[in-house]
C-alpha cells in the first residue's frame, strides 16, 4: 500500500468538549469539507473501548473523503482501526519503537517544543513534527508557549514537514504563517466553531495565500476577489467557486467587469490578475 503522502496543509484534531450537542463525526466531516486535509483523533479522558469506536467511525469518514487519519498516542488503536498512523508526544512510546511496530507504511508524527527535539525527531525518521504550542492553549494547559520564535527556527532548520500547533486561530494565524509555517493545525478554532467548514475554509485560504509568497514556482495565481487579494490554484471559474464552497449557491460571477453566465464557468479559465466579483442576495428593503 505504501505510506499515504503527507501533503497536508490544514491539520484538524478532534476535541469533543468543544462541540457539545454535535457529534464528532459530523463536526469532523464539516472540517474536511472546509478543507482540513488530515485528521487526528485525540481523546485524553476516554476509555480505550470508546476511543476505538470513535476511531472506527472516523476511519469510515476519512476513507470516504480520502483524507489521512492519525491516532494520538495509541498505536494499538491505530492498528485496530487501520488508521494511517499515529501522533506521539515526548512522553509516549519512543519513535524507534513505534516505527518498529507500525512499519514504514504508516505515518508517525512527533510533538516537539524546541529545536533540539525537532532535529532529534527528524533524525529518528519521523514523517512530520508538531511545532508548538505556539500560543497558550486550553488543550495543553500549563505548557509554556513556544511563540513564533520556535516556528521561525523550525522553518529555518527542519527539513521534514512541520506543522504549527497550539492556540492558533483566524486572528493570529497570519503571524504564524509570517514566521514561516506552511502547515497549520487547529483544534478549538475549528471544532469549536459554529461553522467548522467555513472556519476551515478561511484557514486554508490564509495558508494558501502565504504559501504563494514563498513558492514562486507554484501553480498559484493571484486574483482579486471581492476586492481582496487571494491565491488560487483553480484552473476554471467553476473550480474557483467550488474552492470557496459556493458551487451550490445562487451566486453571480462578474469577471473583469463582465457577468459570466453559470454555463460558462466550466470553460472559463482563471488567469493571473483576474478581477472577480462574487455576489448574492441578502436581506434588503
Amino acid at each position: 500500500m505504501g505510506k499515504p503522502n503527507i501533503t497536508f496543509r490544514l491539520y484538524a484534531i478532534t476535541g469533543e468538549n468543544y462541540h457539545p450537542g454535535r457529534s464528532m463525526v459530523s463536526v469532523m466531516e464539516q472540517a474536511i469539507r472546509g478543507g482540513a486535509d488530515i485528521i487526528q483523533l485525540r481523546a485524553k479522558d476516554t476509555s480505550k473501548r470508546e476511543l476505538l469506536a470513535q476511531a472506527y467511525a472516523l476511519r469510515e469518514l476519512t476513507r470516504r473523503y480520502d483524507v489521512p487519519l492519525l491516532i494520538n498516542d495509541h498505536i494499538d488503536v491505530a492498528l485496530a482501526a487501520e488508521a494511517d498512523g499515529v501522533h506521539l508526544g515526548q512522553e509516549d512510546l519512543p519513535l524507534a519503537e513505534a516505527r518498529r511496530i507500525l512499519g514504514e507504511d504508516r505515518i508517525i508524527g512527533i510533538s516537539t517544543h524546541n529545536i533540539a527535539q525537532a532535529l532529534e525527531a527528524q533524525a529518528g525518521g519521523a514523517d512530520y513534527i508538531g511545532v508548538g504550542p505556539v500560543y497558550p492553549t486550553g488543550t495543553k494547559p500549563g505548557r509554556q508557549a513556544v511563540t513564533t520564535d520556535y516556528v521561525r527556527e523550525a522553518a529555518a532548520q527542519v527539513r521534514i514537514p512541520f506543522v504549527a500547533i497550539g492556540g492558533i486561530t483566524l486572528d493570529n494565524v497570519d503571524a504564524v504563517l509570517e514566521a514561516g509555517a506552511t502547515r497549520i493545525c487547529a483544534v478549538s478554532a475549528i471544532v469549536g466553531s459554529d461553522q467548522p467548514a467555513e472556519t476551515a475554509r478561511a484557514f486554508k485560504q490564509r495558508i494558501r495565500a502565504y504559501n504563494a509568497h514563498g513558492a514562486s514556482a507554484s501553480s498559484l495565481k493571484q486574483v482579486l476577489i471581492n476586492g481582496r487579494q487571494e491565491w488560487t490554484d483553480a484552473v476554471t471559474i467553476a473550480g474557483l467557486v467550488e474552492q470557496y464552497g459556493l458551487g451550490a449557491k445562487r451566486i453571480v460571477v462578474e469577471l473583469n467587469g463582465v457577468i459570466l453566465a453559470r454555463e460558462a464557468w466550466l470553460h472559463t479559465s482563471v488567469d493571473e490578475g483576474a478581477k472577480l466579483e462574487l455576489v448574492h442576495f441578502v436581506g434588503g428593503g
Binding site: A202, Y244, V252, V279, H280, F281, V282, G283
Partner: peptide
C-alpha cells in the same frame, strides 16, 4: 439587496 459574498463564511 445584492451584495458581495462573504468569502470566509459562505
Amino acid at each position: 439587496a445584492v451584495r458581495r459574498v462573504n468569502l470566509d463564511f459562505a
